[in-house]
Design a protein around this nucleic acid. Structure first.
Lengths: 211, 211, 211, 211
DNA sequence: TTTTAAACGAGACGGTACGTCCCGTCTTCAA
DNA sequence: TTGAAGACGGGACGTACCGTCTCGTTTAAAA
């Protein structure tokens, strides 16, 4: 199980997701995250309350406070839990065609943002981290950085292949790809779809092709 | 005064919804927006309360509820009030040098985001519009769109000048410029400074120069 | 017109119910008292508000505050207005038969208390005077004392007639008659009807017949 | 402790309505009633507020609303708590002398009404029950009826002793005694003292002595 | 097995803020 | 010039949740 409850130190000095902790709380833990996801999707983040989660999960409030520091931390774990791969690491496909691989990952991002349940969950956590720096850092470290790094790695590979100009900064390119998509999604400045993702990608590719 | 209070009707010919704006007390209105800005900067958005605003502004709560629908709406007017130009329209300089002009506007955006008071205010409103669609639309219409449109217009002018390739979509380019900056600012994925802005601009320019 | 607005000094040093005062406020004045009576009957005293009276009477709030000091004062005038004889004085009939005369007045009191609209109005003013001593005194002076005094006078006449024993205190007897009726009405300790009034009267008469 | 909290269910076998009384915090409960009594005595009923009680008792508002339905209900419990005998039942002394026994109870009533703290409390609850029928019924059942019934019983005993005429209705006599005292107290139509109580008693006794 | 300590559900507690209702005063505007 | 309309600063309402704190009751480990 890769659930990483990184927001909470737990009653013991260090509380990795050790077996004895999980043993006890397993049922409650799952129920809480599931209830959180359902409630966010159902009533929205603004109306999400700890008491609501507790009662929907059939759990005492204290059980929530025992394991999470804040609503943001629960939300974060709920997002992580939903997005969880086995180890949190992300790797882009490398088909040998940079354009195709980037197109795929960008479209996947769009699809994730467009899915209604995910949309609410992501917006909730995005709003929350404006206030909660600890969760913000964790989110970047655990979800955003891996994605950006993987993209960056794929572009670096493209440079080695000769599909991308050697003078470009792969990290910058990654942000150039995801930034506009995120911007459009979060601020709703326009329709977010594959066409937009493709448009971004095409423009960026034009700028980074070997000269 | 050109304050644009877009959340409520304004003294338009027909004003069926909302109270009679002409009766509004200018003193109270100003005090509320000022108090809101001060409090957001001081205690942060999460701890910003209507009661706090009312008491800081020396105003009854009802006076706030009479003119604003939600905390988001107050925040929005506070932002608008702070950013207000004479007519809300934005125009980029046109020195004849696209690169220089875009660099200027992008660096200005970075500067605005980096300013601590502005940072908190902008984060607050960004968080809030995840929930409040009415304010979200208004924000885009009144603040974001004008900025994007002006940038787009400058790029279109660049095409006419022959400084930008005729095949590119100026609107897409505008989002390619602001998206990564916004992304880095909001999610704190890295340092936000002129160097980053320049990096984004250079990469984008590479892609849109006449071929 | 015998309306005596005794609760308020008015904007002039002394404001007897002079014609020029009435001239101005006549319409509004009447409308306010009527609206008060209607609203008390309709929504009860607890939910009676000045704003409600003003809007029901089609009158500005200020107009009410100009002429009355408190809600109790309006209520009081409304009661007075409803009970008003030409001069506020009360006189019991003297048919020559003390028993018959007292029975009549006691039954009339019961009838007034039992009438639903009057009931609410009287309860409202009774509740209010627990707090507002000025109105309390006025009420006693203008409504209760005259009634008690008239009753006392009829009993004194009975003594002169030889129908009542000379040793009794007529004032005490009057309170002995009204006290139990009022007690039963206000506290709802039992059914209030003519039978009860008759029972009280019979018992009292037994005690005061010439010996 | 014989506190009789008649406004909520109490630990009876079946307690469907209301929260689980057994969980009630004794400390909070006592503090609320004490604070209520103090505040009524201090600022009067009109200025008594739930918020005031809560803060004087060092208690959250919700704790009050959890256990009492209305301000009247708190007031009522405060009165009950102050008047509480071991079991709520009242029994008059029977010294063998009806007159002496009734004189005692009537004078005690007067003394209770005249005591300043009690006066305010009693007036407050009397005003409040004009509006709140549930509390009104409870008050009669728990405080007034027992008193009247005990008086009635003493009079009935007087009949058996031959001190009271057999034809009189003992219940009516009880009301004839308390009614005038209550009337004078509540409406302040005159001085309330032992002399008045004695006067009422003498007149009534004259009417009910064996003939 | 039995004991026993933790984690658990439930929910009362002292609080803070909410959004609403009125208060009594003050201001505006149309008749 | 008045008076209806209603905005204003303010206080209290009753409600929703917060995060903490008992309460018994499981329950799973150590004894």
């Amino acid at each position: 199980m890769n659930h990483l409850n990184s927001m909470e130190p737990g009653p013991r000095p260090v509380t990795p997701p050790g077996p004895d902790v999980s043993r006890r709380s397993g049922r409650a833990h799952k129920a809480i995250l599931a209830a959180t996801r359902e409630l966010v999707a159902e009533v929205g983040y603004q109306r999400l309350t700890i008491e609501g989660i507790a009662s929907a999960a059939g759990v005492g409030k204290q059980t929530i406070y025992r394991w999470w520091r804040s609503k943001a931390a629960i939300l974060f774990d709920a997002v992580l839990d939903a997005n969880s791969q086995e180890d949190g690491s992300v790797e882009l496909p490398n088909t040998g065609d940079v354009e195709a691989d980037l197109r795929l990952v960008l479209r996947e991002s769009v699809a994730a943002m467009v899915d209604p349940d995910n949309d609410r969950l992501q917006r909730a956590i995005t709003a929350e981290i404006q206030t909660d720096l600890a969760v913000a850092g964790e989110l970047v470290r655990r979800l955003l950085r891996p994605q950006l790094d993987a993209t960056q790695a794929r572009i670096a590979a493209g440079i080695r292949d000769g599909q991308v100009d050697g003078s470009v900064d792969p990290g910058m390119v990654a942000e150039l790809l995801f930034g506009p998509v995120f911007h459009r999604w979060l601020l709703r400045t326009g329709d977010l779809d594959d066409a937009f993702a493709d448009g971004v990608l095409d423009l960026v590719l034009t700028g980074i092709r070997p000269r």
